[in-house]
């Protein structure tokens, strides 16, 4: 364990540089820059709330906030895993010429997406002000679901980055999977409208749990139960362990396929 930590510490500067570069690239040549992290979910929320207020109506109090909390978490997962997936391929020119810890590529992508997530939390604060939603003290627990989600996304990103090296067309397939996943997660509809079977299957959807805990602490003033914390943690740890295992097994061979 110790050698891994020493090596990670040695390369912390690289992680920092890669994250900075990701953030710069994302907002290069855009006038509003980081404001996009905040505007994007707000505009998405506006569009979807209008659509769903007129076309389908769900019995949800404070629908814009319900939507926004779900969207922001889903957007992070979407961005982090999509960027991580291509991270090894994009880092190919370095990996082929320099010996360095390769997990740093998916890790940096997940971290930079997480920083975007933190920016977009400002959108939630703005909506609190606009909608006069009362803020409960339980909001102090908000980092918990975010950390769980970060670990989960990191593990998933590592698995995807390995897969995409061997099977390039995963990239196209994953876009479809993500869309399906979005519709299968109660982001813009309440979980209780689902028929029985999908609702039972919802237990196995990690995003459902993370978003539910996040809404509990931010919107509903509830302290998440030990049980739901453990469920979230179990998904996260499993994802990370599988990710690390797959990555470790594959990393020596990457270089031959890049």
């Amino acid at each position: 364990m110790m050698p891994y930590i020493i090596k990670f510490w040695k390369y912390r500067e690289l992680l920092y540089q890669l994250v900075i570069r990701d953030l710069r690239v994302k907002y290069r040549r855009s006038v509003l820059g980081y404001a996009w992290s905040l505007l994007n979910p707000l505009l998405m929320m506006a569009v979807i709330s209008i659509v769903f207020s007129y076309m389908f109506r769900f019995e949800i109090d404070n629908y814009p906030m319900y939507l926004l909390t779900g969207l922001i978490l889903y957007n992070f997962f979407n961005e982090a895993t999509t960027l991580s997936m291509s991270s090894i391929i994009n880092g190919g020119s370095l990996i082929r010429k320099v010996s360095l810890p390769k997990y740093i590529f998916p890790l940096s992508r997940t971290v930079s997406s997480f920083i975007n997530l933190l920016f977009s939390l400002v959108a939630i604060i703005i909506m609190f002000a606009i909608t006069w939603t009362p803020i409960s003290w339980t909001i102090i627990f908000f980092p918990l679901p975010l950390i769980y989600l970060f670990i989960f996304a990191l593990g998933a990103g590592m698995i995807l980055s390995v897969l995409s090296v061997y099977y390039r067309d995963i990239m196209h397939l994953y876009g479809v999977i993500l869309t399906a996943w979005m519709y299968l997660t109660p982001i813009f509809y309440p979980a209780h409208i689902l028929p029985e079977l999908p609702r039972a299957l919802m237990k196995f959807n990690p995003l459902f749990h993370y978003i539910a805990v996040f809404r509990e602490v931010v919107l509903y003033g509830q302290v998440p139960t030990l049980r739901s914390n453990l469920v979230c943690l179990a998904f996260s740890i499993t994802s990370l362990l599988v990710g690390l295992y797959v990555f470790k097994k594959a990393q020596d061979k990457f270089v031959l396929y890049l």
Binding site: K10, Y11, E13, L14, Y16, Q17, R21, L94, V98
Partner: peptide
């Protein structure tokens, strides 16, 4: 950037 790639501190 290159220093970071080689694992040297800032």
């Amino acid at each position: 950037l290159n220093g970071a790639v080689l694992g040297y501190s800032r």
